[in-house]
Design a protein around this nucleic acid. Structure first.
Lengths: 249, 249
DNA sequence: TCGATATTTGCAATATTTTGCAGTTTAATT
DNA sequence: AATTAAACTGCAAAATATTGCAAATATCGA
């Protein structure tokens, strides 16, 4: 285990969870706590994290909600997001729907990445604002109380004027035959519009939502360009999805 | 649970709800009340919150600047907001600009009040969403990183389509001759548009901002219908403002 | 490849910090 | 004034940090 490698892992932990416990990571990496202590000390001096009694925490208290609402299956979503971020390049125009996976995506965007991001989601817009190189455009409209995203006619109208390079569709349910489905009619309309406004459609989706179906249809599988799950692309659970033009990641 | 983590959670709680109960947070974090008491004591000494019997309260959510004036400012703002709320009636369409006073207004809206609220401010929209009888419409557009409000042409375009009953203009500087002024050009444009889109213009303003002037002009005093300060309307500091058609509250 | 040198790692002894508890004092409420 | 909840104090146990040192490992020139 190289020192640099440990540093990377530690920083990654901090990036994802906003903190790291010294004893945990020491056991996980199979080195003595002293070593981790030294690592953290170095990273602290480099101002890459903040060393505290018992471990380390992330620097920027920029995060509006340090106490983030408990996100279901966070680990899996983090893995999805890490893959999804590789699809992004400087200068792109990105469209982000709502949902916790996209929220994580916004939170974990590398600070150096230069993007123009459109989103109708209030919490995601808040996250994006903390990224120094992201220009954030809120797609306004009537806000839905529970999903915290803009819905309705005027929002659709604005979306129709956008042409984004890539769109990340927070995906509730996906099924090889039924396609992408949702239980909220208004959100279905928003997502349909987002698909229309993007050159490329990415569907980040945790594996347990594969093969599930909701009441209203957003689109067929074939309209999705890239399906990102926490599984390995060759996992046989994905076979039925990757048959068409859909790329798996 | 790291100490630092608790601190962040406590501060966040205070920032969101303006207060925190010691026993609640102790139970929530599964630590003894003594520990929280110590945490609060430390944060109090660091002037990050104000320790009170039974928990802690916010210093005023704008902890950038000096601390002591902010404590008073929050109290003043609360008084202003209490008066401003009396101007609201069920069924009205309301336009809210950004700023801390309007944030307080949104926070303190009675849950029973039925309104339709338009705002270009991200934090204020978030507040409004927690009000069960308020329909919130976000006036979208490019988001300004520091003020967290939508600015620019498309935002102005949307505002021009609205006709609200009443508009609350978070007021930075007001002067009997120079009128309302701002230091940010983009925000000036937004506020101008908001004035045009409203039947009635309310300027909530703490007394220490009376007679101050910034670089760019929003409008003349005469365009303001109601000036709300924490002072009594007959206070002589307000004499110069109440001379025209401006009502004082 | 070898060996000298520098760096890294783990360990042990010691110091420090954190935390919860018990007893007492203080503050708020009726 | 009585009652109750919260705050403060001192203390001890547990966890964590620091330091110095020796062994292990890596680095680099010949």
């Amino acid at each position: 285990m190289l020192k640099e490698e440990r540093h990377r892992i530690i920083l990654n932990e901090v990036r994802i969870h906003n903190r790291v416990l010294l004893t945990d990571i020491a056991e996980f990496l199979k080195v003595s706590p002293d070593t981790i202590r030294r690592d953290i000390k170095i990273l602290h001096e480099r101002k890459e994290l903040k060393k505290v009694h018992g471990g380390a925490i992330s620097l920027g208290f920029n995060n509006q909600s340090t106490v983030r609402p408990e996100i279901y299956a966070l680990e899996k979503k983090t893995r999805i997001v890490e893959k999804a971020i590789t699809l992004l390049k400087d200068g792109q125009v990105v469209l982000l729907s709502g949902g916790t996976t996209n929220f994580e995506l916004a939170r974990l965007l590398p600070p150096s990445l230069k993007l123009v991001c459109f989103t109708p989601s209030l919490p995601i817009a808040g996250q994006l604002l903390s990224k120094p190189n992201v220009e954030t455009i809120f797609v306004g409209g009537r806000l839905s109380r529970d999903s915290q995203i803009a819905i309705g006619g005027s929002t659709l109208g604005i979306l129709s004027q956008i042409k984004a390079d890539i769109c990340f569709l927070g995906t509730n349910s996906i099924h090889p035959d039924e396609g992408l489905t949702e239980f909220d009619w208004d959100i279905v309309q928003i997502k349909k519009a987002m698909i229309k406004s993007s050159r490329k459609v990415v569907a980040p989706c945790i594996s347990e939502k594969l093969d599930s179906v909701r009441r209203y249809k957003i689109c067929d599988i074939s309209e999705v360009d890239i399906l990102v799950t926490e599984l390995h692309p060759s996992d046989n659970r994905l076979d039925v999805f990757g048959s068409g033009d859909v790329k798996l990641l």
